[in-house]
Design a binder for these strands. Structure first.
Length: 210
DNA sequence: CCCTGATTCGC
DNA sequence: GCGAATCAGG
């Protein structure tokens, strides 16, 4: 493949959008991310401070180049990086169990304690995230999850990829927090065990009702 | 390990 | 000009 005007244009557009070199390469096809990066440099549209250049150079403010507005527009770019704590919209056959939807509303713990006062937040003991109220999950799945969480790789946000389980464990408000990180089921954001509690057939949920 | 971009250098 | 290999880093 060669760099036709059209391909170069796509490259420029995607790079401007903050797409990673590998993503661009995948899109264009016929080239590697190295090729893309090489081209980006030859085109002179690299720059984008904050990255590698951080190493040896405090030459920063000399001619003081005009700040790039879009720089802020691309905070964390790679898709895999997106925390995506909450499962994305799913087909139809199955849907994330509300109770298991992490970031979502932490099912009001009716048994926690009065807490009538607004001032009182939430004890910092038990996590708000997953903790799918036990009564919503089958004992087997629960046991499985607990077992798995002992083996969790305890990954940090940045270590998550498309292939790691993104199930949050612990209390985000403390250091006692990490992501499962075990190999995720193809196409799903969680590992086998967590998929089990996160995705439940509607029928199963109905049956468990009451 | 996974993934980033940056650089080098033979072609 | 091109891009694989390599480097440096999260």
């Amino acid at each position: 493949m060669s760099w036709t005007d059209e391909r170069v244009e796509t490259l420029k557009r995607m790079w401007a959008e903050g797409q990673s070199a590998s993503q661009i390469a995948k899109e264009l096809g016929g080239v590697t991310r190295n090729a893309v990066i090489g081209k980006v440099h030859r085109l002179g549209l690299s720059n984008r401070a904050g990255e590698g250049a951080s190493t040896a150079d405090e030459v920063d403010v000399a001619p003081a180049p005009p700040p790039r507005p879009e720089a802020a527009a691309k905070p964390a770019e790679p898709a895999a990086q997106k925390p995506a704590v909450a499962p994305a919209a799913k087909p139809a056959a199955e849907r994330p169990a509300p109770a298991a939807a992490p970031a979502a509303a932490p099912a009001a713990p009716s048994n926690v304690t009065p807490l009538p006062i607004r001032k009182a937040i939430i004890p910092a003991g038990q996590p708000l995230p997953p903790q799918p109220s036990a009564n919503e999950i089958s004992p087997e799945a629960l046991a499985s999850v607990r077992e798995v969480e002992k083996r969790a790789r305890k990954l940090t946000l940045m270590e998550l990829t498309e292939r790691t389980c993104k199930w949050p464990i612990g209390d985000p408000a403390t250091d006692d927090f990490w992501f499962c990180g075990l190999p995720s089921v193809a196409g799903k954001p969680y590992c086998e065990a967590h998929v089990g509690v996160a995705f439940q057939p509607m029928s199963a949920r109905r049956d468990r009702r009451r």
